[in-house]
């Protein structure tokens, strides 16, 4: 079992299925800008945590939370508070 937690992070690409349930299209190639540090990159290159509870996508530079998504039996939730923009 993981001792230091380093093995827990995945790539944003691994959240592609969950995100496509919400966005209908694949957003992993979309550009996303971090509101905390202004850096921009592809959604697929973000750092993904918290699976399988949900997708918490963090900035690869500053670790700020850009996007959170959860799939529940009662609906899907999306919070994009830390994102300045998403560009398809």
């Amino acid at each position: 079992m993981t001792e230091n937690g380093v093995d827990l992070v995945l790539d944003g690409n691994a959240a592609a299925g969950l995100l496509q349930e919400i966005f209908v299209r694949d957003i992993t190639t979309a550009q996303i800008q971090c509101e905390s540090c202004d850096s921009t990159g592809a959604v697929g290159s973000l750092h993904l945590y918290a699976m399988p509870m949900g997708a918490v996508l963090r900035c690869a530079h500053c670790d700020g939370v850009l996007l959170r998504a959860v799939h529940t039996p009662h609906g899907r939730w999306l919070d994009m508070t830390g994102t300045r923009y998403l560009r398809f």
Binding site: A14, A16, T29, G44
Partner: peptide, 9 residues
Amino acid sequence: VRGPIGGYF
């Protein structure tokens, strides 16, 4: 099966 998924990688 559902997919394909993930256009980034």
